[in-house]
Amino acid sequence: MNQQDLRMHAKKPIKPGTMLGKAGAYIVMGVFAFMTIYPLVWLFLNSFKSTTEFRTNMMGLPVDWTFDNYITSWKIGEFDKLIGNSILYTLGSTVGITFFSLLTGFAFAKIKSKATGLIYGSFIIGILLTIQSLMVPLFLEVTSIDRGIGDILRSLGLIGPGEFRLFHNTRFGVLIIYIGSALPVGIYMCTEFIRGIPSAIIEAAQIDGAGYFRIFRSIIVGMSRPIAMTLSILNIPLLWNEFALINILVSETSLKSLPLGIYKFSGGLSSDYGKQFAALVIGMLPMLLFYIAFRRQITAGVSMGALKE
């Protein structure tokens, strides 16, 4: 038998057992898909019901469609401020993470140094650590440093008696810690990617007299666009949805991010379902839209297996 015959032979007619298996597969996966879609649709529809209507009509379509829930919860949650902060934190740290990851990844991949083994290795350990487990020492670190610097500056007469803030309750602190928390994965991905760039290109540029920074700017950044895209697209939802760290880093409403604002609706406001649902929709809509817009890139990025929860 030649290859063609073998292929033909391999295509057996569908047996009833396979049909049953197929049906089972569709049912199980269908149940999971249903459990994903239905709660979100349910939430969305109920956000247009008043709390009174929700109590008597939990499952059906809204009878009186109302937009009031959105108006009030937007006001209570001060979401206009929080969304601005979330955008700043997400974009600011994404840019920072991508920049530092590429820069350091380039050094690890293309500049020979005895230090690389140790430092790169320590970043790899960071991939295995969950930054949330360090939130208590991180909190003590930022507050103590702020207090320490404040005391010194005060004793030198450089600042007044007020509280000195550098890392705790500042946007700068959030950005630095967000950048740091994502650097291990970012540096790992960028180092591996840049290693794949032929060294001949770099050597040629060196012969032309270009230094490493010049090579980074004019060659590496351009060639690393795919990995920079992947890294950004993976980090944006993680940063936008981040809760555990910002929860301890920031206590003033003017500095809070969207998830912190949504969390407020789980406590005292929890029996006012209408507003709570509207807040939840406001909380998830930006990333759902982002997902719809970049689904292909996100799917490709996640399947690289480099996503850290």
């Binding site: 530092f100 990851s101 820069l103 350091t104 380039f106 050094a107 690890f108 500049i111 020979k112 140094s113 230090a115 430092i119 320590s122 970043f123 960071g126 650590l129 930054i131 360090l134 208590v136 020492p137 991180l138 003590l140 670190e141 630095i176 810690i177 950048i179 740091g180 928390s181 650097l183 291990p184 540096i187 230094g211 490493y212 920074f213 980074f216």
Partner: peptide, 30 residues
């Protein structure tokens, strides 16, 4: 080369130590 290397590695490494390294040491001590 050495200077370029450290200029590229050190900022990231310091941020990393600030966010991961130092808190771990602090946690052990405390």
């Amino acid at each position: 080369d050495r200077r370029a290397y450290w200029a590229m590695v050190l900022p990231s490494f310091l941020i990393y130590l600030f966010v991961f390294g130092f808190p771990i040491v602090l946690a052990i001590v405390l």
